[in-house]
Amino acid sequence: MLVIKDLHVSVVGKEILKGLNLTILAGEVHAIMGPNGAGKSTLANVIAGRGGYEITSGSVTYKNKDLLAMLPEERAWAGVFLAFQYPVEIPGVNNTYLLKAGVNAKRKQQDLDALDAIDFMKIVKEKAKLVELDPSFLSRSVNEGFSGGEKKRNEIFQMAVLEPSLALLDETDSGLDIDALRVVAKGVNKLRGEDRAIMMVTHYQRLLDYIEPDFVHVLANGKILKTGDKSLALELEERGYDWVKAEALGSEKSV
């Protein structure tokens, strides 16, 4: 589904990703872990097409298409969804209206008829229930005045409605209490399926108790330094990241 080869990315002249390789197949769940400033959020943002990042070399292929050549909305239409680390407030813009416009723009690309208000509301209500989102949030402005937890829940709700093929969760777990985390996990697990993939960026092993990953990657120094299964996350929780860096350094030297 997603193939990243030798990706180099800079922000205002400073190289953040330094030759990152990653392949995510349909049906898989990948967790990206790593110390602060390692470039985890950069990776998610670059895949979604956020501005301000300079891609100096490398490629990102999504469903056999050059993802880097696509506009952010084209990526969204093609099924890429980013759950923002810091969801943006948009005063005056109704939450439901934004979603409806998004869903119908995507349907138009697929030569499907636009959903009418009644059908759309049916879907919305069902998904809101799934993530236990208070229906009053539907008619409020996008993220305006939401608490941190509500914003994160709203992100998962939007994901549920938009039904992406590739979901990128950028620290969706940070700042959530355990109940909210469970709800968010439920929404994500519901989305798992044969033809879908999920990439989660996280600091904490806790999330992985609820959303079990197929692979855990350690991103540090702008590269994936180590890949393992769920047990790697437990090990990281216990030992931190330095040993991975040291190990990587050692292997580089020995090469």
Partner: peptide, 30 residues
Amino acid sequence: IGEDQLFYCQQRGLSEEDAVNMIVNGFCKD
């Protein structure tokens, strides 16, 4: 218009033009 607001709308599948319209309309809503 915040670039992050535009990007957020685009990430949800809106074209840039629609995103601008939507944000402006939201701005004028009162």
